[in-house]
Design a protein around this nucleic acid. Sequence first.
DNA 1: AATTTTACCTACCGTTCGGTAGGTTTATGG
DNA 2: CCATAAACCTACCGAACGGTAGGTAAAATT
Lengths: 219, 219
Amino acid sequence: MAKTEHNPTAGAKTRAQILRAALKLFANNGYAATSIQQIVSSAKVSKPALYYHFRDKSDLFSALVNEALDERYDIMRNAAASVTDIRGQLTAVLTALFDYFHKNHDLTRLAFSTAFAAPGQVPRDMIYLGKCRRNLSLIHTLVKDAVARGELDRRFNSEELAYGFSGQANFYILSHLKMLNYRLDRNAAARIVNLYLAGAAAKKRKAGSDSFDVNNQSK
Amino acid sequence: MAKTEHNPTAGAKTRAQILRAALKLFANNGYAATSIQQIVSSAKVSKPALYYHFRDKSDLFSALVNEALDERYDIMRNAAASVTDIRGQLTAVLTALFDYFHKNHDLTRLAFSTAFAAPGQVPRDMIYLGKCRRNLSLIHTLVKDAVARGELDRRFNSEELAYGFSGQANFYILSHLKMLNYRLDRNAAARIVNLYLAGAAAKKRKAGSDSFDVNNQSK
DNA sequence: AATTTTACCTACCGTTCGGTAGGTTTATGG
DNA sequence: CCATAAACCTACCGAACGGTAGGTAAAATT
């Protein structure tokens, strides 16, 4: 994407400043509402300096979004790989996402705005949809395997199982971006997974085999 | 918001043309990426004609978004009022949302883009966050009452129950806006509510009292 | 009939947009 | 010691932006 190889020479600092400033602005104002002038002013570099490191505005944006989406994906994948049962996996994924969210507010916001924005809001011909689908596929694979292992209910197909979990997970993070509600930590993650697995309906009989503790679950 | 009272006189047709063109453009390109010139060209009116009917760009946008958000809210409220049990209510709400989505693609897209967009992407000082919260509150009230009636599991608090359902509901519609997956009809709504109520986990014993039919449920 | 209001029109305003032409400094390799 | 490329700089470009000044034809009001 960028014109230069990213060796840590002189220009690397300038490049980093640009990326940092652009990230904050793109994340908070979106692509179209962020001007090159704002970016270079905020980064305290000149306009040709920016155009030396990036082909054009969409190239700069693209570099940031790809980083955001790829990092999120890796985070999820690594979290899922650390455990084998579905409850542990989903909790680990959710905890990792929450953690990443707290540490990288702007990258998360950027990932979500571009994923859910209007199609023309963002430079066209980019393959962000594929990267968004990829995250869903990851969850899909997880639940599919879990169904095969008998951990999840066979009466639901794996697509709707994946949608159900992804929907809840993304919605929690998304609402947190707009309004701060209660803390998103691993306890919250465990509770969310619990609701997803156990269901919202009141249980008629709390048989020993079906019982669970809402407040402290998973490894 | 608008300068004129909206009596159906001569100018009403022009106003409607502007609104229709603006809706399509805002929904597909977002606020910042849509220019006044594009709108008036698409609506086949002159620029002062637009500025006669709307104070400025944000006023025009505001009129559309408020319509979109208010309509969605009314739809949900009416659907929920038609039944009394939580399964029926959630299914009705979801079915109504799916139906509205199919009939008003652009309005739905507009509602979602503005609800989930970056804060600066949209003209500031608007109270869209309140209107988004309102929808969540509606679900919250529904599940809270259901918990009180003993229909939902008391071990979950009502906030997370509301988040869980809203998350799934919104995510289904959102993904449909990006990529067409399987049909969003009342059958899909029933299945989603089913997953939400029954939970994803495999049931250890399918006792008569706990059994359910995934494929055909609710009233 | 005179006057006011509605509902626009053509033409244009200043600003900002993304992007560049062309020169300059600094590190690097021969 | 010189050439070459990297890493910028000042100054500027045409186009598009949101918005308006000032005039006008037709309808409504007095």
